[in-house]
Computed example of a mutant assay.
Amino acid sequence: MNRPAPALLQPRKAPRQARSAATIDAIHTATIQVLLAEGVGRLTTTRVAERAGVSIGSMYQYYPHKQALLFAIVERQLQSIMSAMLVAAQHLEGRDVATVAEGLAIAWLDAKTADRVASRAIYGIAAEFDLGEVMGEAKRQMTQVIGQLLAAAPDARFADLASAAFMLTALLGGSVRMVMETEDSEDSLACLRQELPRACKAYLAAANWGAAQGAPCLRD
């Protein structure tokens, strides 16, 4: 698949005024609506502009083509999730390891399922892009945030803090993605909401007290 690089998909300009920001919000909302109603194959910038109530000229001021618009939707979703996790991290700072594990798991689930319909639509278009750089930066930020929380936990005894933060990031991301990209049923999400915090707490408990016997698996 010939996927355009992120550098070729950046918007022409960023909104600088409240009116421009409102236009962008309307465009993004309309894009999700068209995706859900007609699918990515029938989505065009003209259809989105009509649904958003903006001129095609206004659309092109920001997004030169369909691919740039869809990429912006994916990026916005990632930024929204990261923002939610940063807020959660502020509330968890200085708490014990078990509380941090449970709090992060719940916050991650809340962020990923805040709008399940839109999230599934976004998962459907994400495969069209080369997201290695974007996802790599998101992973780096998450690992850093988790590492800082674990380092500040009063009962932290991690011999390999970096590996613990990396593994918790992978555990959160991989488990939710597996469910959201497949059935996304009420039962599976309810099970995930019950079991993911337990899994995170169990892993960190083992890493916190047992890692001293093993060598670090991540190196600078």
Rank of each mutant, 00 (worst) to 15 (best):
R47Y: 14
E93C: 10
D96E: 13
Q90S: 14
A111T: 10
T46R: 10
I56S: 08
L36H: 11
F71P: 00
T31L: 00
Y60G: 01
Q61M: 12
A118Y: 02
I81A: 15
V87T: 15
E75Q: 15
H91Q: 13
A107Y: 08
V48T: 04
L70D: 02
G57C: 03
E102K: 02
P64Y: 10
L70A: 04
H28F: 08
E93D: 12
G57W: 13
T46G: 00
I125V: 13
W108M: 05
Y123D: 04
A118F: 00
A127Y: 08
A101V: 01
T113S: 04
Q90V: 07
E75P: 11
Y62T: 06
A126T: 01
V54Q: 09
Y123I: 03
T99E: 05
R95H: 14
D25I: 05
L109R: 00
H65S: 04
I125R: 07
A72W: 07
I56A: 09
S80R: 15
S58D: 05
E102A: 11
T29H: 14
R120F: 04
S80T: 15
Y63K: 05
F71H: 01
L109F: 05
Y123M: 08
D115Q: 03
S83I: 10
A52E: 11
L70M: 07
R51D: 15
G53H: 12
L92Y: 07
L104W: 01
V48N: 06
S55R: 10
E128D: 13
T99N: 03
L43H: 12
T29D: 15
E128R: 14
V87E: 15
I106Y: 05
E128F: 02
I27D: 05
A26E: 09
V48M: 04
D110C: 04
E93L: 09
S55F: 07
V87S: 14
Q77C: 08
H91S: 11
V87D: 15
L43T: 12
H28I: 01
L36G: 15
H91E: 13
A101G: 06
D96Y: 04
E128A: 12
K112I: 06
V100P: 01
A26N: 04
T99C: 09
G124W: 00
R95S: 14
L109W: 00
L92A: 04
R116H: 02
V34A: 07
G39S: 10
E128K: 11
A37F: 05
G124D: 11
S119A: 13
H65D: 13
V48Q: 06
T99R: 01
M82D: 14
L36P: 01
T44H: 07
M82S: 14
I106K: 05
V87K: 15
E93H: 10
M82K: 10
L92I: 08
A37L: 04
I122V: 06
S119I: 00
Q61C: 07
P64V: 11
A52H: 07
G53K: 08
K112F: 10
A84P: 01
S55W: 10
I122G: 00
A49K: 04
R76Y: 09
L104P: 00
A89W: 08
Y123K: 03
A52G: 08
T29G: 07
Q33E: 15
A26S: 13
S119D: 03
H91M: 08
A37P: 01
T31E: 06
A49G: 07
H65M: 03
K112M: 14
I125T: 02
T31P: 01
E38A: 12
A68V: 06
L35C: 11
A49D: 12
G53P: 05
T29F: 06
G124A: 14
D110L: 04
